[in-house]
Amino acid sequence: MATDADPALIKNLLDALDTLSGTHPGFRPVHAKGVFCTGTFTPAPGAAGLTRADHARRPSTPVVVRFSAAAGLPTIPDNDLRGAGPRGIAIRFHLADHVHTDIVAHSHNGFPVHTGEEFLEFLRAVPLSGPDAPKPTPLETFFGTHPRAFQFATAPKPIPTSYARESFFAVTAFKFTNDSGATRFGRFRIAPAAGNEYLSPEDAEKKSADFLSDELGERLAHGPVVFHIRVQLAAAGDDVTDASAVWPNDREVVEFGTITLTQQADAHDPELWKIIFDPIPRVAGIDSAGDPLTEIRSAIYLMSGRRRRAAGPHS
């Protein structure tokens, strides 16, 4: 899981994330609060035409899925209107013993910045821009030169009625290659079979702090939860190397497969707790499209994951 990212930049980014939420040994620096589920991935009939990746050609593949709130606070309420969104999903496809590939996505289409250096500037500006900070605040200054970051920060992030009613979007694009060597660039999208459903702010306030994880467990006790994985394909001229560049909605979207979740898993299970999800697919047939954030995010996940493992399981 080695990357070519600058170690100093990765450390600075991790330090900046710690400044935002504090350090919580045994937890992730972002998306600290989460819930695990297990199930199966079944590829769509046309998936093998897009990529030669193993899970696109097998009848089915076991998966582990983690849903999460955005913040690095392990006790953040699920109904927090500011820090819980965008929510995250991480999917691990178990291809063989110690062989896997992951999809990491969140519930907002797009990312605030293009590079690791811009992300660091953004993260450092946030704690310096409280209500008592002189105007213009560092964050306001940053937004003035990074309009996509402003759009990301101010876009509505409604709270879903259930993790099973939320859509998710992969942050970066990938290059998909099939057996014939044909390549297409695209971004994963994960859509709930039950459709999207969100709470009003007034209804969200009435929910309990752990209502999303509680509701998911109750829902799974009555039947499976299904998500459709799709790939939005880039058209000529679309920037495949910039996570902050959202492609138009009229771009072709193809079916990749279906995830069927059947049970909630114990987050304290040693095999689940130690998982370090990887934004780099590391499977033949799906490669980075060249977005610098792909390597940056992978390196942050690895460094923070090793730190989390060294701290030991949380209580």
Rank of each mutant, 00 (worst) to 15 (best):
P86W: 03
D250P: 05
A191V: 15
A90V: 01
P62W: 05
G110D: 02
P313D: 08
T61M: 12
R165D: 04
T141F: 03
H24V: 01
T61G: 11
A90I: 02
N249L: 14
G237N: 04
V63H: 01
E166T: 06
P138Y: 11
T75Q: 09
T51L: 10
T294P: 04
P156N: 10
S288L: 08
E117K: 08
D210L: 03
I76T: 02
A69L: 15
Q263V: 04
A149L: 07
G22D: 11
N196E: 15
L20W: 05
A44R: 00
R282S: 04
D203S: 14
Q263M: 12
D78N: 11
P77T: 01
T137G: 13
M1F: 13
R307W: 04
F256G: 06
L14Y: 06
P136T: 10
E271N: 14
V231E: 07
K175E: 13
D250A: 09
I190S: 11
P86S: 09
A125S: 15
A311W: 02
G195M: 11
A289E: 09
N178H: 00
D287F: 06
G290T: 06
S107E: 09
M303K: 15
T172Q: 12
V126E: 10
L73H: 02
G223W: 00
G22R: 03
E197I: 03
F143L: 12
D291L: 05
V225N: 08
W273D: 12
F227L: 07
S315Q: 10
A155Y: 11
K135T: 09
P224N: 08
V113E: 09
I296V: 15
R58G: 02
L128P: 02
E121N: 13
G223S: 00
I275W: 00
E166Q: 15
F111C: 10
N196Q: 13
R124K: 14
T38R: 15
A182L: 12
A133W: 05
G195W: 09
A221S: 05
D278H: 07
I276G: 03
V225T: 07
S315A: 14
T141G: 09
D132S: 11
A209H: 09
R57L: 06
L14V: 12
V225P: 05
D214T: 12
T262K: 04
G83R: 14
Y301S: 01
P158Y: 01
G237Y: 01
S208F: 00
F168N: 01
E205D: 12
R282D: 08
L233G: 11
L216Y: 07
T145K: 13
E118D: 14
A182R: 14
F152V: 07
P313G: 11
L17M: 15
A90W: 03
V63P: 07
Q263I: 04
N196P: 00
R251L: 09
H146L: 05
D80P: 06
S60A: 11
T294Q: 09
I296M: 02
V113N: 06
S180V: 03
R219A: 11
L14Q: 08
R308M: 07
K33F: 00
